[in-house]
């Protein structure tokens, strides 16, 4: 069986984390230090997510034919 290339990055995970960060920043009484850290991570995630959408180009691959039966 031919090995599969790694799947594309998980956009959903980025977005989920970003949403969590925004909610914490809005709701919790964090000290400035922690708020800063969260903000920086948020900006980084935002940038990554945007880049994924901006640069994406649909990749198409064909699963190779399997001759006979291997299962």
């Amino acid at each position: 069986m031919a090995s599969q290339p790694a799947p594309p990055p998980d956009f959903g995970k980025h977005l989920e984390r970003l949403e969590t960060i925004v909610r914490r920043l809005e709701a919790e009484d964090l000290d400035l230090d922690e708020a800063l850290k969260l903000f920086e991570e948020g900006v980084e995630r935002l940038r990554t997510a945007r880049a994924q959408l901006a640069e994406a180009e649909l990749k198409v691959q064909k699963a190779l034919k399997v001759e006979g039966s291997d299962r």
Binding site: L53, L58, V60, Q61, A63, K65
Partner: peptide, 17 residues
């Protein structure tokens, strides 16, 4: 192919003939 290219090119399409 047309629809996925327009909406969500982040994905990868695997054609299983």
């Amino acid at each position: 192919h047309v629809v996925v290219t327009r909406r969500w090119p982040v994905a990868e399409l695997v054609v299983v003939p």
